[in-house]
């Protein structure tokens, strides 16, 4: 069992969460190019080691979070809300670029 420190609910079993995807994927604008969309939807770095990934606390607060995890050892290094504004509200030290 992975144990995930949900920023809202505390330390919980991973069975309450759903794995999303590689959090580093940047989705193009809706009118982006077919190539850009293809890459975002179909192509993956598939990191063997530490990656940032999205999870949803499906059976809890339903918030999406970004988990920094080693895919080889399953060690979890950090967790934060996926939504930058919420992450910042919880932890003002997280700087958000003004144009975001």
């Amino acid at each position: 069992m992975l144990r995930i420190q949900c920023p809202f609910c505390g330390l919980r079993d991973h069975s309450e969460f759903s794995y999303g995807s590689d959090a580093s994927v940047e989705y193009p604008p809706l009118d982006g190019s077919q190539e850009a969309w293809h890459d975002a939807v179909f192509q993956r770095e598939n990191i063997d080691g530490v990656q940032f990934e999205t999870w949803q606390h499906t059976l809890g607060c339903r918030m999406w979070i970004v988990v920094e995890r080693n895919t080889r050892t399953h060690d979890i290094l950090s967790v934060r809300p996926a939504h930058d504004g919420i992450a910042q509200a919880l932890n003002p030290s997280l700087m958000i670029e003004p144009d975001q």
């Binding site: 069992m1 992975l2 079993d13 991973h14 794995y19 590689d22 999870w55 895919t71 399953h74």
Partner: peptide, 13 residues
């Protein structure tokens, strides 16, 4: 196991 992994071991759920 529903999450990406390179570890050759599984979990209880």
């Amino acid at each position: 196991d529903w999450y990406k992994s390179y570890a050759q071991r599984g979990n209880l759920p």
